[in-house]
Design a protein around this nucleic acid. Sequence first.
DNA 1: CCTTAGTCATTTTTT
DNA 2: ATGACTAAGG
Length: 727
Amino acid sequence: MDILVGLNPQQQQAVLAGLGPVLVLAGPGSGKTRVLTQRVAYLISTLGVHPYSILAVTFTNKAAREMESRVQHLLGEPQSRGLMMGTFHSICARILRREASQLPFNSNFVIYDTDDQLALVRQALEELNMDDKRNRPASIHAAISFAKNELHLPDDFPVQDYRSEIISRVYRRYQELLLTNNALDFDDLLLWTVHLFDQFPATKEKYARLFEHILVDEFQDTNQAQYTLVHQLSSFHRNLFVVGDIDQSIYRWRGADYRNVLRFESDFPDAQIILLEQNYRSTQAILDVAMAVIKPHPHRAPKRLFTSRGSGEIVNLVETTDDREEANFVVKTIAGMIQTKTAKPGDFAIMYRTNAQSRLVEEEFLQHGLRYRLVGAQRFYGRREIKDLLAYLRLVHNPADELSLIRALNTPPRGIGNKSFIQLKAFAQQVKLSPGEAILSIAKDTQSAVSSSFPQRSVTAIAHFGDLLTSWRAKVDELPPLQILDNLINDINYRSYIDDGSPEGEDRWENVMELRRLASEFQQPGLGAFLERIALVSDQDTLAESNDAPTLLTLHAAKGLEFPIVFIIGLNDGTLPHARSLDDMEAMHEERRLLYVGITRAKEKLYLVYSQMRSSFGYSEPAIRSRFIEDIPESLLQIKTTDDAQLGIGIHKPKDNWGFSSAKSSAPILHNRFSAGNRVRHSKWGEGLVLNSVLSDDDEVLDIFFESVGLKRVAASLAKLEILTDH
DNA sequence: CCTTAGTCATTTTTT
DNA sequence: ATGACTAAGG
């Protein structure tokens, strides 16, 4: 049977495991994706299971798509049609749309992102006359989210003290607000689905009978709600196949509980347990470091990792002077290896603890004129122009969405301000409609609004907006998302609003074009699928398909991926482990696991990098190297310093008396355009005095003292500088 | 109603 | 250092 070709005995055992519960404990790089894929193929082709009777839960939607295409490839074309695959969140969204008639929202619900969720918490606080300074919205929201993941509804939210009383009341109001907006937050998707199955046993039974086989990846990162859901869905057939690795559990902070793996063993005492220990990804040198890092972790089942890939190159531990130099080291090293053809640009990954750390590295890439790809959904969807247009689309899809209405109503400005909106809300309440629906009714019949003490001017403006909304909605079931998007971009003249001809304006328009490209992937009429995809994109989903450039990503986003050459930067106490976990044992253990995940992403080469100084909030402070480094025996490491001559890729830099390093080493190709003593004018910062000018790579780096902002370091090619005096 | 200057908080990690 | 939010002016 060619489904088993190339699998080791343990992998085969997993693929062929019989009916009933199965727990696969899979170390990093042990081929668990292959096992999952081949098992699905095996179920369909050999056991004759219908694809639509199989539910496979993956950690990202991208992983689901990949698995689907691999299964298809194994089986030959159409046999895999109907497979239910996706993340917990996207699967729940599908179920909820189908079953919305039994629930207090309709199937056009929108999924609120983090910003919307916070806005709603703020609104709840305000309505309850609570101070949002004393009660931080973010922390209240975290508490609500935590409660939801533990399946606590407002009614059974445990109230023990003053703070939980506050949270309980905000939670209750927050939940009401979501429903009036016909909106769900991320946690609701899980919560409502569990609730649905609880309240309507017949519905639960329908799905439990449907899914003969359920497969769950990354089981160590499920939370209480997801665990319950898996139980409900597998309650009929009990064919539950879960794959996980406690050592790789990194989402405790969002409610995940690796003890679900242990709970599985006790809840299903008859479960077959299969251990995958052979690693097919990394060299032994990398695995040894990984095991040294994870070894001190308490209460873990000791797992041996072994590889047949040979010992490989020793792992590098690199000390740099500060974080700027850290970034410089990484990019220089990469540039060097690309130049000497030691590696391809797509072979590299740079991993860090916090998103903020990407910036210095990005700047360094820019300086070197190298392309890179950045993993992170927030960066794109957080942009103003994207949020604007999505607000319009969501409103067209679901007029009850008040948050989107507020955003769309006055972008671009059309004379409907706060006052008019308050009047609108009052009017809407009178006629028992949501504000969005009220606008539609005003467009139809201006008189009703005028008569209820609305100034004529705002009625006209609102009616105009209502006409637009009505016209878009009229075609929403006929046109694909791209058409709807284009229509509204035209109708509101959006380009002239955001693109003023400046470079920033062009960037904004570029982003709109990117959104159009995303929309064009959806051919079917209707906005539901498109909006849902956007709401539930994971960071990994944004990873561009073409991998011909180094990848920048957080350690969290790196989960499940692999790269030939990996740099893990910022290995300093306070960064990794993060300062926020210093006083929490469990959190500290999770930081260790996070580093373990990062290390085990590497196939050939690994660089662990830290620096003596780190800057945060703009100030540079001394830092000590990560405590986790101390757990690695020195014999496993090649220790380097960037002022070490042996490194020799031009990282060595003499220090000038400002404490800045200046790279005079590279042969100057250009001439200095500026010199110390020049007075210059900068478009934003005004006049300044050049203190120092240094040629670096193919640019001129200037230290300038501006009257307005003080000392700045700029690249002459980027900052448009005008010389005021000549010597 | 929209622009601007000043204040302030912000740094985990993400569906 | 940067950006988001608030209060005052056009």
